[in-house]
Design a binder for these strands. Structure first.
Lengths: 239, 239
DNA sequence: AAGTAACCGTTACCTTAAGTAACACTTATT
DNA sequence: AATAAGTGTTACTTAAGGTAACGGTTACTT
């Protein structure tokens, strides 16, 4: 009986699993190259050409344009998180760590300005909001920061209601300052990191002071705070 | 001689000046309605239909889609600046004024969420960056804040090099927190304003403290600072 | 060895939405 | 009366995303 089709684990079906992934990655790379060449408004034809295939091949691997762009975005996410993760987990004086995190972010966008602009500015009109990589990333980072801040505040018996808005505020702050800097690089990356770290530190310090907690910015934090597992990037469950 | 054509001030040419403006405004309104109805991906046909005309009429008043959207954006700019201007110029304790400015912004996006999302998210892929209303607005507000902050810092003989990045940081901060809040309104506008004002105040206060300047957040500023003409929104020269 | 499930790849087409051409009518100024 | 502005229409062109239909290759299954 030809019952092989239904449900059976035909090896022919599995055979390609890895390959498909590799191919997608290959097309994502091609897209990035195409964007570098033709600017952010590349067409699918040009991307296909750059990849050395014709359009339908592309469409076998990506449902549509946004799907491809989404993959490009995720690729950017990976690059970002690979840098941000370690920067967040690093120990040392709190002031330096803030600067380290900010600087890690700025380094990523400095090294990939085209990709960055493409992913951020190109954010797809047609996809539902939850499928927007930039929104996703910001939400992920903000959630991590919110948890961090919240724990921090609660450890000092302070109201932690502000943790979430503050986290989003911090994310927006760094992003927007980064955008501005990327467009007209009128100061060194180090200076900007320093300036941003300064203002962030003052904000945090101010919150603590208002509860009469005094922290030395140049000393590592006591009691394992800021180095707990919660500080790692919270895993978002994705399909 | 039929020399009336060239350069002469034929009244027939002037006759419509006002009318054209009115018509553009009318179409901008129609676009906003159409967006409310059909979501941010409206087509020109639908917009034309909503305006009660057919497409070519639209194209007599707007060079292309982005031109129309740009006009919609500027309309948003006006609404925003109308609120932000007075909020910035208001006097009173500095802490309250910060909250007032933030709250003015939040009120605008709260009252026009659809328009806001359309203008911000829809930001045109095809126009050059300088024609992006959102970027323009943010730059304008940031420039105003930068000048404000710079004057402030210089008045206390402090390094004012951070004024510009800080200004952009503040703008991004409020915008991003606002976006987050708009999507899931998990707290009252007042609470958010308060939280944001708190962190901003702490940031500023921290900067001043680091130069041994102590300011009472609940007292009006001395010496006319923060109420000078520079505080008004800087005029951007537009074509 | 034959069949087949997955892929590779192409050309030529469909569809949608932005934008335009060509045409006819209105109104107040010259 | 001529004309410069504007009003408006239908029917078209164009560009870009996306698809249909075709044929070939590889290696697992029977």
């Amino acid at each position: 009986m030809a019952r092989t089709v239904k449900g059976g684990s035909d090896a022919r079906r599995e055979r390609w699993k890895g390959h498909r992934e590799a191919r997608r990655a290959e097309f994502v790379e091609a897209t990035i190259r195409a964007v570098a060449k033709h600017g952010p408004d590349v067409g699918m034809d040009e991307i296909a050409l750059e990849a050395g295939v014709s359009k339908p091949v592309l469409y076998r691997h990506f449902a549509d344009k946004s799907d491809l762009y989404l993959a490009v975005g995720r690729r950017g996410t990976d690059m970002l998180m690979d840098r941000l993760g370690p920067a967040i987990e690093q120990d040392g004086p709190i002031r330096d760590r803030i600067r380290g995190i900010v600087d890690a972010y700025l380094r990523v966008i400095e090294e990939n300005p085209n990709l960055y602009r493409f992913v951020v500015r190109g954010s797809f009109t047609d996809r539902p909001v939850e499928q927007d990589v930039v929104t996703e990333d910001k939400a992920l980072i903000a959630a991590t920061l919110a948890r961090l801040l919240g724990d921090y505040l609660r450890a000092f018996d302070m109201d932690s209601g502000g943790a979430e808005p503050w986290a989003h505020a911090l994310v927006g702050m760094v992003q927007n300052a980064g955008d501005w800097w990327l467009d007209r690089q009128s100061m060194s990356r180090q200076s900007l990191s320093e300036y941003l770290a300064t203002i962030i530190w003052h904000a945090i310090d101010g919150l603590l002071r208002s509860a009469d907690v005094h922290v030395d910015p140049d000393q590592p934090l006591p009691g394992g705070l800021f180095t707990e597992p919660t500080l790692r990037l919270i895993n978002s469950e994705e399909a």
